[in-house]
């Protein structure tokens, strides 16, 4: 009887200790999200430059920044095998002189260029962890606001794969991403030429836009059921705000995209109505949308509809991110708003 007790005690003790050791090992393995990821030789590394406005530190062999998850990351420069989990981010990566071994499926109306040899690792919403791991990447570039991406990041990090998550919504996100990507690829020359071109052109357009018109605008998301509007915290909304217009849906509610009151739209009677659509055949869908607006007495009563300032925006510049074509996107809107200034 005694021996049974003794054996039980030993077994329990060994189980407990195994558990504790397991836990402590695990605890060691879990990275502190606040702490920078250490890479070999980092301590002795020389800091080459710092870009305070984007919070990016560029060392000789690595780039340190806080990514969009609010996690400090250290990414080794010139990674050989890279997978990018959004095609718009891939476009920026490509412009920054990077190459990839994996990407996600392309949509029918926006083909991916310069990645013909890259393997497809799944869809934007649900990339395949197995497929990604099988490609043995050095770096995975993800989006921070997609659960399908966030969910696989811990597993990637546990496999010692460097991961950085980005926001890709507004112009500032684009500038920062270009800064980080060109730092990682070590192509400062591209950063200078590329960003200078885009930024200077965009700034020039904003500067040139009249400041006294204060046109009232509304951005509609056309294919949604219900009247869905987008405020100045969205890509097109930000562009229009930069061009000195007033979005009638700003300051109401916290969401960027919201269901809005038709009554309020009639009362405000916006000067311009911009329509974003997911449709691919722009000519056809534009005609259809305009007919819809004209045949609906409530919409037809609006000045913007009567005076043909109901504008259906092309998808490539205003639904997908324009990236290196940001200046073109700004100019397009400026020409619509101020034809007398932008000819």
């Amino acid at each position: 009887m005694k021996s049974i007790k003794l054996i039980s005690a030993i077994l329990t003790a060994s189980l407990m200790s195994a558990l504790l050791i397991g836990c402590s090992n695990n605890a060691d393995n879990i990275k502190n999200p606040e702490a920078p990821v250490e890479t070999p030789g980092e301590q002795n590394e020389k800091e080459v430059s710092q870009t305070p406005e984007y919070g990016v530190t560029i060392n000789e062999n690595s780039v340190i920044f806080t990514d969009s998850r609010d996690v400090a990351v250290t990414i080794s420069k010139n990674p050989k095998r890279v997978i990018v989990l959004q095609n718009s981010l891939f476009e920026i990566w490509d412009q920054a002189g990077g190459t990839v071994v994996g990407r996600i499926e392309e949509s029918e109306d926006k083909k991916v260029e310069n990645a013909s040899t890259a393997e497809v690792v799944g869809s934007l919403g649900s990339p395949s962890l197995e497929k990604i791991l099988s490609l043995q990447p050095d770096l995975v570039i993800a989006l921070s606001n997609y659960s399908g991406h966030r969910d696989i990041i811990p597993a990637l990090e546990q496999s010692n794969i460097e991961v950085a998550a980005f926001d890709n919504d507004l112009l500032e996100d684009y500038y920062r991403t270009v800064r980080i990507f060109t730092a990682i690829t070590g192509r400062d020359d591209l950063y200078e030429s590329h960003i200078e071109n885009v930024k200077k052109s965009v700034d020039a357009i904003i500067e040139k836009a009249p400041k006294d018109k204060n046109y009232k605008v509304v951005i509609l998301f056309a294919t949604a059921k219900g009247i869905t509007v987008r405020d100045s915290n969205t890509m097109v909304g930000e562009m229009l705000k930069d061009l000195n217009t007033v979005n009638i849906s700003d300051n109401s509610g916290t969401a960027d995209t919201k269901t809005f009151s038709m009554e309020k739209i009639i009362q405000e009677d916006p000067d311009f109505i911009f329509v974003q659509t997911m449709g691919t055949d722009l000519g056809k869908i534009e005609e259809r949308l305009k007919n819809d607006a004209l045949s609906n007495p409530a919409w037809a009563s609006l000045t913007a509809v009567k005076e043909d300032r109901y504008i259906v925006l092309p998808k490539d510049l205003y639904m997908y991110k324009p990236n290196q074509r940001y200046a073109e996107a700004y100019e397009g809107l400026a020409k619509i708003l101020y034809p007398e200034v932008f000819k």
């Binding site: 934007l124 919403g125 649900s126 998301f221 949604a224 059921k225 219900g226 869905t228 995209t257 997911m278």
Partner: peptide
């Protein structure tokens, strides 16, 4: 799942 970027259009429905 396959079109998460387009889902916002149908949430209202």
């Amino acid at each position: 799942t396959f079109y998460p970027d387009k889902v916002s259009g149908v949430i209202g429905f």
